[in-house]
Design a protein around this nucleic acid. Structure first.
Length: 555
RNA sequence: CGGGGCGUGGCUCAGCCCGGUUAGAGCGCCUGGUUCGGGACCAGGAGGUCGGAGGUUCGAAUCCUCUCGCCCCGACCA
């Protein structure tokens, strides 16, 4: 069976990982490779079944494709190179382990989907994917092998794709709702671009690898790389002082500068030097605002990197902490918040000196403005009057309009009404099945263990018989067990010969929604006890009313 | 790939710096008995290539070299 542990596994850090190990749901075989033990696999099956039902409901047909793929199929779309080291390659034959299945689905589609009459189609599977992650982490959340529900849509038109995409969007919401997850959707529509090319379904979690800005009032959600917020720029003082230099020994950071000069950070312009196309660029930010490198790259076009310390000295004549726009030899760009600013403080390009009285309009020529900020928690939502929260999140699912990328390169063509050939218009839609499980635990646990949502709990009822040397307790438990099973209620019977406390604590750790405790004292009154795991509420119930009460509580 | 940490019974770890009996503890496991509503107790017992290879030494868990694995931070991430 499964082994439970009260010990904290010292290799696990995030709650879901710790609890999955402690409760015997999974066991690690190798880095990023986990065996699902009977209890954990029941959860996977329940989640999979919910996914199947909702995929079938939008007309999906389930496939089961090979994980082992001939490399040549992947060469057709040039994705052997695109995936690079992430793609597992078999050593003794020209095979790869599939990291996803666009190629294979397209391979099948081009053989059978030949006419506009054959579409639309939605094909999906729930299958193991392999990715050679450089660094697996957080247990099952980022593994080298993981279960994914991947679906692909095939349409004759872009309108058809919109429709297939929309069906998936709705199905995904139903799936995650049914799994009891609190999630939100990050879409291209939330970004600056408008339109809907892709949406990510995210769950807030400290184990997350993405950072998102979210407004719970209006639902605005965006990856922090592209998120924007309502923040005020600097107000221009009516009087512009002239430039003056100040000695600021050992002052490196904006905080130190503010402390030293007794000024507010909104009077400071922070300098960051980046290298773009081998040339230095000075980026000015207001106060302690952080530079968003993604936004920077978008504005500049192409990759940037922070300048190394020795480069800084060479470029500006000073070390980090004393660099500023006045006298800087090179291109200067600034965040929108600094537009029209005057009486500002910044580095003097001379170690241990700063300059005050900087007027951006007067003293810095050719400065270009744009939004370069990383938004922070508490800032105004760009879409409503409320405020943004910034936090890490896990990507649970992704829906994506592929278009003709794969059908073009793999020549998956169909014939339209006029007899003309066109590439099939495709969409692709994924859900990380283990991630659903892990996220559910992340959202539903307490100090004692997991608190399963009944939709995906491995069992609905955890039956505990105390002192199984007493025959009447054993008999009662077996009757309850059989009756519940007959009523199609999944029940786990803890028939181990261990002390009561042991069983209680394990039951709390495993987290089935309801616990039934059969003990000697209450059995004498023909009663047993029900405990609701989520609330901790406990009460007695007469045995012949037990089943109805259980059914009622599971409603 | 860079930085840091760790590999010793099933689990958590001590021992290593400073080499020297038969490698320890707690938990778990097995046998018998007592106990039985929030992690009981008594008695007895089993279980270890000290991650691996090589080296130094009369002698290596301990020192040296290499190697494999795992975790954490960072880089990367369709």
């Amino acid at each position: 069976m499964f082994q439970l542990s009260k010990k904290l596994p010292n290799d696990a850090v995030v709650a879901s990982h710790i609890l999955m190990l402690r409760s015997g749901m999974v066991r690690m075989l190798s880095a990023g490779i986990y065996s699902f033990l009977p209890l954990g696999y029941r959860v996977i099956r329940k989640i999979s079944e919910i996914i199947r039902e909702e995929m079938d409901a939008i007309g999906g047909q389930e496939f089961h494709l090979p994980a082992l793929n001939p490399k040549e199929v992947w060469e057709e779309t040039n994705r052997v190179a695109a995936f690079g080291d992430t793609l597992f390659q078999i050593k003794n034959r020209e095979y790869v382990l599939a990291p996803t299945h666009e190629e294979i689905m397209t391979f099948h589609a081009r053989n059978v989907v030949k006419s506009y009459k054959d579409m639309p189609q939605i094909w999906y599977q729930i299958q193991t994917k392999f990715r050679n992650e450089p660094r697996p982490r957080s247990g099952v959340i980022r593994g080298r092998q993981f279960l994914m529900k991947d679906a692909y849509s095939f349409d004759t038109s872009w309108e058809g794709l919109d429709n297939s995409y929309d069906l998936h969007d709705k199905a995904y919401r139903r799936i995650f709702d049914r799994c009891g997850l609190k999630y939100f959707v990050v879409g291209a529509s939330s970004g600056a671009m408008g339109g809907t090319g892709s949406e990510e379904f995210m769950v807030k979690s400290s184990a997350g690898e993405d950072t998102v800005a979210y407004c719970k009032s209006c639902g605005y959600a965006a990856n922090v790389e592209v998120a924007v917020s309502r923040v005020n720029g600097v107000e221009r003082d009516s009087e512009s002082k002239s430039i003056f230099e100040i000695s600021t020994p050992d002052v490196k950071s904006i905080d130190e500068l503010c402390e030293f000069l007794k000024i507010d950070e909104t009077q400071c312009a922070k300098s960051r030097v980046y290298i773009h196309n081998e040339k230095p660029i000075l980026v000015l930010m207001l106060g302690n605002d952080e530079v968003n490198e993604t936004k920077l790259e978008k504005v500049l076009g192409g990759a940037v990197r922070p300048a190394h310390p020795d480069e800084l000295k060479e470029i500006s004549g000073a070390d980090a902490g004393s660099i500023g726009p006045v006298g800087f030899n090179g291109r200067i760009i600034a965040d929108n918040r600094l537009k029209n600013a005057n009486n500002m403080f910044s580095g003097a390009n001379k170690n241990d000196y700063h300059i005050g009285g900087i007027d951006f309009n007067r003293d810095i020529t050719n400065v270009e403005y744009s939004d370069f900020r990383i938004v922070k928690s508490g800032e105004g939502c760009p879409n409503c009057e409320k405020h943004l929260e910034v936090f890490p999140a896990i990507e649970l699912g992704h829906i994506f309009k592929l278009g003709t990328k794969y059908s073009d390169s793999m020549r998956a063509f169909f014939t339209d009404e006029k007899g003309e050939e066109h590439p099939i218009i495709m969409g692709s839609y994924g859900i990380g099945v283990e991630r659903v499980m892990a996220c559910s635990i992340e959202q539903n646990h307490d100090a004692n263990g997991i608190v399963w949502d009944k939709a995906i709990a491995p069992f609905l009822v955890h039956l505990i018989g105390l002192n199984l040397k007493k025959q009447d307790i054993v008999d009662t438990c077996e009757k309850i067990y059989n009756d519940l099973n007959q009523a199609k209620i999944d029940v786990l019977f803890d028939d181990r010969d261990v002390t009561a406390g042991f069983k209680f604590n394990d039951a709390d750790l495993l987290g089935m929604p309801l616990q039934i405790v059969v003990g000697e004292k209450k059995l004498k009154e023909n009663k047993c006890e029900i405990k609701i795991r989520k609330t901790g509420e406990r009460f007695d119930i007469v045995l012949n009313e037990l089943q109805n009460k259980i059914k009622e509580l599971l409603q």
